[in-house]
Design a binder for these strands. Sequence first.
DNA 1: GCCAACGTTGGC
DNA 2: GCCAACGTTGGC
Length: 162
Amino acid sequence: MPRLKKYWLMKSEPESFSIQDLAACPKQTTCWDGVRNYQARNFMREMQPGDGVLFYHSSADPPAVVGTAEVASTAYADSTACDPQDHHYDPKASAENPIWEMVDIKLVEIFPQPLPLPMLRGIAALKDMELLRKGSRLSVQLVRKPEYDALLKLAHAGRKRK
DNA sequence: GCCAACGTTGGC
DNA sequence: GCCAACGTTGGC
């Protein structure tokens, strides 16, 4: 039986991979490699195709939620962990035990205006978001549906005003 | 560039 | 199993 759609937030530093980079990918789809945190990996294992993803630019000026994507695969082995040349190489990983996994992500939309982090801190509906918690570092986070909906609404507010 | 928060490692 | 040391993340 299909489970309810879930919602996630995934961080990327735009200097290494931005949402514009995602838009330029073939089929506007990419594999989300390089995650080396167990909690984040476990979240990716929970993902199912069609789940909603908020794309977040970290270490940006300002940091911001910049658009949405959707999960396009279930989790599979992240082979970059086995590549000594790769920046995210993990000597403990092997073909038999890859340890690290990734999913494919497909672009849905780039917001007309990014939603900057300082602005989000002022939104009551988001006050319990993991992203806004002090010291929050997790690069893959679970997002509650009301929070996801509130963000989409913010992203599209004022569009008709031009 | 600073530093708080957090995860991981390794000595004991 | 504790915890100090260390490395990393990421906002500011």
